[in-house]
């Protein structure tokens, strides 16, 4: 189970790095945060899991989405 989550995390992170659409990358990153929160919960660290879910999936996604809305959705490089 833990190995499966770790493998999925790596795949999702690579996808977020490679995606040209920044909004897709942001949503994938928030999924990564949710999955790592699940991983931390499975590893008996519920405190860190709450922080990861609230910061990673909540606040940072809001900040990223508003930055994308204020600038450009396509990756320029």
């Amino acid at each position: 189970m833990i190995e499966l989550i770790l493998l999925t995390l790596v795949v999702l992170c690579l996808f977020a790095l490679e995606s040209r659409d920044l909004l897709t990358g942001t949503i994938v990153l928030s999924v990564v945060s949710l999955l790592s929160a699940l991983l931390l919960y499975l590893l008996h660290a519920p405190d860190v899991a709450i922080t990861e879910a609230a910061v990673g999936a909540g606040v940072s996604t809001v900040i990223f989405v508003w930055a994308i809305k204020a600038t450009d959705r396509k990756d320029a490089t």
Binding site: D47, T51, V55, G58
Partner: peptide, 25 residues
């Protein structure tokens, strides 16, 4: 709740504060 019951259940000031911030957003 997460903030005030941090001494009994998982959570605490930082975690509860971030959840409160999500609620305000």
């Amino acid at each position: 709740y997460v903030m005030m019951f941090g001494h009994m259940s998982p959570g605490g000031g930082f975690q509860g504060g971030v959840v409160v911030a999500s609620g305000i957003v």
